[in-house]
Amino acid sequence: MQFGIFTVGDVTPDPTTDRAPTEAERIRATVAIARKAEEVGLDVFATGEHHNPPFVPSSPTTLLGYIAAVTERIILSTSTTLITTNDPVKIAEDFSVLQHLADGRTDVMLGRGNTGPVYPWFGQDIRQAIPLTVEHYGLLRRLWREEVVDWEGKLRTPLQSFTLAPRPLDGIPPFVWHGSIRTPEIAELAAYYGDGYFANHIFWPASHTRTMIELYRKRFEHYGHGTPEAAVVGLGGHVFIRPNSQDAVREFRPYFDNGPVYGHGPSLEEFTSLTPLTVGSPQQVIDKTLGFRDYAGDYQRQLFLVDHAGLPLKTVLEQLDLLGGEVVPVLRKEFAVGRSPDAPDAPTHQSLLRARDAGTGPQTPQTPQTPGS
């Protein structure tokens, strides 16, 4: 099982000092956080994609390409690549280049985005979000898998005799996770292609996450990819850790109360009781995270948000020391206990290459012809 962190890249004033980092400081801090994640033994670093203030990761593959040069082992991913407003050709090119730079230690999480104005900025209509997702992803898969692509759809100009350059490393496209908070059609799309499904999981109660994952697993089996237990699932989460739980709550409260996402709504206590947010000691984080398996089943990737809402870099790095030193080693051990033999490991470039060479790689279903059939 893989453990890691993801960032949304917000530039938020620290509510205890009223100082906000500059954009340059925030970008450099993100690189430092990724390097620290590798140092403490985490498996994955992922960044979101945003095109509006107060966020800085408007070019995720540029950021990840730099991080690839200053790391050696950690898998580099996105926590959202906008499949709706980005052109599939450009996504295919960018991630192929990143694959080569990172020696294959990269994958991609696709999402629709939740910022309405972004769609017209990139020439798209938010009312077409689901059709854009389906059409763009169908093209993206072909670009990574076919030497010459002739394609015509409804929402993009046709392609004639197009060849992607560079081709994916070793002929293996990056593994794709489809990220979603609330949309069943995305779980359906992931199941149809046998891709991974990532439930963002930081805003919604366990009952909602259970419903979405059960839908994905059921449809994964329906499309002939294997048992429901063989489906590839990832979960998000948000933690703030201190050795003493009272200290964690006291220190994190101003960040929660003033955060651009959480602030000015339910109290910290209400939110932690209703959602996966965990603010407390290492043992409390361990206990709550282990409880995710009760409704998600055996899953493959767990990512935590640790740098949101204006937390200073020093505090974030301390979070990573606790996560890597006291939390994740226990989670690795405990999640292995009683794990279903049908539950696969999280895919990597090397595992996909081995499966391809052995003739056991995943196959896209030939029928039905469209997701949802």
Rank of each mutant, 00 (worst) to 15 (best):
A336G: 06
Q283T: 13
G171T: 07
R242A: 14
Q300P: 05
R219E: 14
E147T: 08
H201V: 04
A20Q: 04
G338S: 02
R73T: 07
P282S: 01
I286K: 00
P53A: 11
D170G: 06
S96L: 03
E38S: 09
G291N: 07
P21L: 10
R242S: 12
F304G: 00
Q350V: 15
T370F: 08
T157Y: 10
V330T: 15
G111L: 09
P117R: 12
D321Q: 05
H201F: 09
I172C: 03
I130D: 12
L155R: 13
Y197Q: 11
R28A: 12
V11W: 00
G291S: 11
G259T: 11
P329A: 00
D150I: 01
V316H: 14
N114M: 10
P276F: 04
S245V: 01
K288I: 01
D321Y: 03
G116C: 01
S281C: 00
E326G: 05
E214C: 02
L159K: 10
G179C: 12
Q300M: 02
A187W: 08
H308Y: 13
D43N: 09
Y216Q: 06
H238M: 13
V249G: 09
D257G: 09
W177T: 03
E185A: 10
S281F: 00
L305G: 14
D170K: 06
Q99N: 02
T211K: 10
F256K: 02
W144S: 02
G359P: 04
G153M: 03
P174Q: 05
G236K: 02
N258Q: 15
R112N: 07
P365A: 07
N86Q: 04
F198K: 08
D195Q: 09
R141F: 01
N200T: 12
G297R: 02
P57W: 08
T278S: 00
T278K: 00
L305T: 13
L235Y: 02
N52E: 07
F256A: 00
A336C: 02
T315E: 15
I213W: 02
E229L: 08
I74G: 05
H349I: 05
H201P: 06
E38H: 04
A355L: 10
S351A: 13
L235T: 06
S79C: 11
V11C: 04
V134R: 07
G237W: 05
D287G: 00
D94V: 07
A20D: 05
H51V: 06
Q2A: 12
P344T: 08
T364W: 04
Q319V: 15
E334S: 00
R217Q: 14
P60E: 00
T61Q: 10
D298W: 11
V44M: 04
D125H: 13
L169S: 05
A32P: 07
V149W: 08
A355D: 11
Y216D: 10
Q128R: 12
R26L: 14
P21Q: 09
G123K: 13
G123V: 08
